[in-house]
């Protein structure tokens, strides 16, 4: 991997917050703001976030122990689930009551913890689905190829470009079902990029990914930021979080318990407590890390 030496020392964005660092701290330029978002399942409160802001053009990690409500929070923010109360906005526009597909159209794209590659479609068709500009997706227009043929070719060119970057271009005519788990994660991310999003929300991008692929995945995430996008991701692996995140938000039992720059947060007693209970002298990375990050660049 040519740029891997670069990837091992990503440039961190700093100075994202305003004022004293505490849970719910204001950001200089927030892209996503959630206020009093609460979701209950029966008697169980899965998410109860008083206030949180996601900084623009930065990589924010959302961490927390199992059952902290991270995925549910993702679902709420993206319209896949509806909170019992609360408001949240993207680029200043309220997302309350906005259906999932409209949220996506506004530039907020998510991926899923369990990869949702469309298994019985080809890799190329998966990619083309990501485009939001195809007029042929309208029922009436679809019957007349001259309306959409040209656009389809443009989309294909764009798709090949992204696939090449993700090293999936040779697989473009294979069914997504034939890809490995890691390749599917890559495909899902590549497909998300086809929508030209502003904010990419990745739900455990590293889960189940072969260690050989993790490095390239990390690099793709870093590239998103370089291209001006904002990334919010859920991850368990502290090594990875420490490595690429500019900002970390910690959830436990549905609430935001801590925020801050990665190294600071890891030292926060509230976080260590949430994760480890009494084993407070252990390094978080050792406990949560599934992968060993390369200390030096190596070619794959």
């Amino acid at each position: 991997m040519s740029s891997s030496s670069q990837s091992s020392t990503p440039i961190k964005s700093t100075g994202l917050h305003v004022g004293e660092i505490k849970p719910g701290v204001a950001k200089k330029d927030p892209i996503l703001v959630a206020d009093g978002v609460r979701r209950q399942f029966g008697g169980l409160v899965a998410v109860d976030v008083a206030h949180v802001e996601i900084p623009r053009n930065a990589i924010t990690a959302l961490i927390g122990p199992n059952g902290a409500g991270k995925t549910t929070f993702f679902n709420l923010l993206t319209g896949f689930d509806t909170p019992n109360e609360g408001k949240w906005s993207f680029n200043g526009k309220s997302l309350a009551g906005v259906s999932a597909f409209k949220v996506a159209r506004m530039g907020l794209i998510r991926t899923f913890q369990l990869t949702k590659a469309l298994a019985l479609l080809t890799v190329m068709d998966n990619m083309k689905l990501g485009s939001t500009e195809q007029p042929g997706e309208k029922l009436g227009a679809s019957l007349f190829p001259f309306i959409w043929k040209k656009k389809d070719e443009e989309i294909e060119t764009q798709a090949i470009e992204i696939l090449t970057r993700f090293k999936l271009d040779t697989k473009k005519d294979d069914f997504a079902a034939s890809l490995s788990g890691g390749q599917r994660k890559l495909l899902e991310m590549a497909r998300a990029l086809m929508t030209k999003p502003e904010l990419v929300m990745l739900d455990e991008p590293m889960a189940g990914v072969n260690p050989a692929l993790t490095e390239s995945l990390l690099e793709h995430i870093l590239n998103l930021k370089k291209e001006g996008m904002t990334v919010l991701f859920v991850e368990h692996d502290m090594h990875m979080v420490r490595h690429i995140a500019d900002w970390v938000i910690v959830m436990a039992e549905g609430r935001v318990v801590a925020e801050g720059a990665p190294d600071e947060v890891m030292k926060n007693p509230a976080v260590i407590d949430a994760y480890l209970g009494s084993h407070q002298d252990t390094d978080l990375g050792t406990v949560t890390g599934r992968i060993t990050l390369p200390k030096k660049g190596k070619d794959s």
Binding site: F80, A104, I109, T111, A119, L121, L129, E137, A192, M194
Partner: peptide, 15 residues
């Protein structure tokens, strides 16, 4: 066809 495979995925792509 995408919906047949996984409607949430297609929804997340803005359809």
């Amino acid at each position: 066809k995408g919906i047949r495979e996984d409607e949430d995925a297609v929804r997340s792509l803005g359809k």
